[in-house]
């Protein structure tokens, strides 16, 4: 078996008398993009901070390629590149000097590597400007450059697309996939944009109130439920509503000439037949699986911060 990139073993965190993390155990493999999801205050950032060595855990241990973050901090952390929470920099220095600053703290980063990373994130035209003149999107790019500088095998990204325009989001998403697939990096992504996680990640870990309530692949997660929303474009609409109501027992939702029903896949042909037999013109059918977002709200019960 391949050695996991990151291994959490019964990680607990207690602050005062309050237990924030109740024993997390999971592995992340090289080449895998792992989405870390949870409502605000669930413990995502606390967990990420413990993985990065910023916070000490009360119990348990975290291993990065077999090195304990507690006892072999330097050997463990050298494999890791991270943006924790917002990408923050020394605003009075240029982007380039910020990268030089980061390069001096690790081994083996040459001037060529800095230039390479700058081109990679597309900051070459502004890199010698002071960071205080940067937009949030540019800070994100600089954050990514800083995290990738020493060619880490693990990348931790908290809200990586925050502040990027749509083109930037697509670019970053592609880039994250490429890093995982071509270079075999293990990547942890936490995001509020759940649709983002759906497009970027291989597996999802859902954390709530400091407990890991589910770890699944994205496909399993989204397809687990057979029911989906089916849209019918029909004419006349009123007649269709009555027919559908009497056959399925559901009151269809109406938007213009569209009707929506929640159905299992197997039921769709039967419904179509009934509609056609009733003389209703059917212009189109679309099906819509539950998005990760809906699933997520369902799994976490739509709970607010506890």
């Amino acid at each position: 078996m391949v050695q996991p990139a990151i291994q959490l073993k019964n990680v607990k965190k207690t602050i005062g008398k309050k237990t924030i993390i109740h024993g997390l155990t999971f592995d992340i493999q090289p080449g895998e993009v792992f989405g870390f999801l949870g409502p605000n205050g669930a413990g995502k950032t606390t967990t990420i901070r413990m993985i990065c060595g910023l916070m000490k855990m009360t119990e348990g241990d975290i291993y990065i390629f077999g090195h304990s973050i507690k006892t072999e901090f330097k050997r463990a952390i050298q494999h890791l590149g991270a943006i924790v929470e917002n990408p923050e920099f020394y605003n009075h220095l240029s982007g380039y000097r910020n990268l030089v600053h980061a390069a001096r703290m690790v081994s083996g980063v040459t001037k060529e590597r800095i230039d390479e990373v700058v081109r990679l994130v597309g900051l070459q035209h502004r890199i010698h400007d002071k960071v205080k003149t940067y937009s949030l999107g540019m800070r994100q790019r600089l954050g990514l450059a800083q995290a990738l500088l020493h060619r880490p095998k693990i990348l931790i990204l908290d809200e990586p697309t925050n502040g990027l325009d749509p083109a930037g989001i697509i670019e970053i998403r592609k880039y994250i996939r490429r890093l995982a697939e071509k270079e075999g990096l293990a990547i942890i992504v936490s995001s509020h944009l759940l649709s983002e996680i759906e497009r970027m990640c291989d597996r999802i870990g859902i954390i709530q109130n400091g407990r890991l309530i589910d770890v699944q692949t994205v496909n399993e997660f989204v397809n687990a439920d057979a029911e989906m929303t089916v849209h019918f474009i029909v004419d006349p609409v009123d007649l269709a509503i009555e027919v559908l109501k009497s056959t399925t027992g559901q009151q269809p939702a109406r938007t213009g000439d569209q009707l929506q029903l929640s159905l299992e896949r197997e039921a769709i042909p039967g419904i179509v037949e009934i509609l056609v037999n009733a003389g209703i013109k059917l212009y189109g059918i679309t099906t819509q699986k539950k998005s990760l977002e809906e699933k997520f709200l369902e799994v976490t019960g739509g709970q607010q911060i506890v």
Partner: peptide, 14 residues
Amino acid sequence: HSGTIKLLLTKPVS
């Protein structure tokens, strides 16, 4: 205050 402490403490330096 600036949050840059994270840049210092997530590097292989004690």
